[in-house]
């Protein structure tokens, strides 16, 4: 069995009286690409900042490759590369100067790897960073993180600010990282991004881990949502007992939004008793998947 890259035990952070995260227990194995999913404010960034020792836990521990995040912070950072989604860089430096500066603090970097990344991302490295767009700043951030070839890469919303073409290149880099046996811990609120890149995903909501699933298990989840328009008033309660229906809510007096998990047949049979003007299948949102796990957790 491979060793643990990240091991969080009862990790808790309070900001005064308000809660950041509470009792987060999570293991990420070495060589795994792990997605950390949750809506804004759920506690994803707080968890990452605790792992990186930017902030100190109120309770619990975070270990990286068996090292304590607070006590062994410097040793851990030799093994970690970190990129924030809303990365702040030194605006007065050029990309070359920034990477030279930060790499110096990391103990140097592989020149060939740097050239390869600069070419892959088509980054503008010779202009002062304050003159660059958010996307170009994000590219420099990605290069500075990847160039050290760390054992564990921690991304906080990595594709934020990148255009779709650059996102593909990023996903390709993550694939290469996985092939090389290194570990990726990636926070995101983009389900598609996680589905494309991750082996497992953890769902965080209101500061707590709601579920941890493999992407295989998640793909088995057959969540669908349909908006059904009737030619008359309708009561949602009439549909809540139908097999597979997880929720039924009114959008307006004549339109019902039904979320089902499993076969659509029981719903079709039920609808045959009504006058239906229109049925539209809606894309399942990340929030709905959260809701599915959240409700499960409540039960």
């Amino acid at each position: 069995m491979s060793r643990l890259a990240i091991d969080l035990k009862g990790l808790t952070k309070f900001y005064g009286k308000s809660r950041g995260i509470e009792d987060v227990t999570l293991q990420v194995r070495e060589g795994e690409v792990f997605g950390f999913l949750g809506p804004n404010g759920a506690g994803k960034t707080t968890t990452i900042r605790l792992i990186l020792d930017f902030i100190r836990p109120s309770r619990g521990t975070a270990q990286v490759f068996g090292l304590d995040s607070v006590v062994d912070s410097v040793k851990i950072k030799k093994k970690i590369g970190y990129l924030a989604g809303d990365i702040a860089l030194y605006g007065h430096l050029t990309g070359y100067q920034l990477i030279d500066y930060l790499s110096d603090l990391n103990g140097g970097y592989d020149r060939q790897e740097f050239e390869r990344l600069a070419s892959a991302f088509k980054a503008q490295l010779s202009r002062p960073i304050h003159n660059l767009s958010k996307g170009n700043r994000q590219k420099i951030g990605l290069i500075h993180m990847l160039v050290h070839q760390p054992e564990l890469l921690v991304f906080d919303e990595p594709s934020s600010g990148l255009d779709p073409f650059m996102q593909q290149i990023l996903y390709e880099e993550i694939r290469k990282i996985k092939e090389s046996g290194r570990t990726v811990f990636m926070s995101s609120h983009n389900l598609e991004e996680v589905q494309r890149t991750c082996d497992r995903a953890g769902f965080v909501r209101d500061g707590r881990i709601v579920a941890v699933e493999t992407l295989k298990e998640m793909s088995k989840l057959n969540l669908k949502r349909y908006d059904v328009r009737f030619g008359h008033d309708i009561l949602p309660s009439e549909f809540r007992s139908v097999e597979g229906v997880e929720s039924a809510q009114l959008i307006d007096e004549e339109t019902l939004s039904v979320r089902i998990n499993g076969s659509v047949n029981p719903l079709i049979q039920k609808l045959s008793n009504y006058t239906v003007e229109n049925i539209t299948e809606q894309k399942t949102s990340l929030e709905e998947i959260f809701f599915h796990y959240y409700e499960g957790d409540d039960k």
Partner: peptide, 15 residues
């Protein structure tokens, strides 16, 4: 305040 301190704190350099 600018957020650049995190760039330094993420390096293997002690506080």
């Amino acid at each position: 305040n600018a957020g650049t301190l995190e760039l330094l704190l993420a390096r293997p350099v002690s506080r």
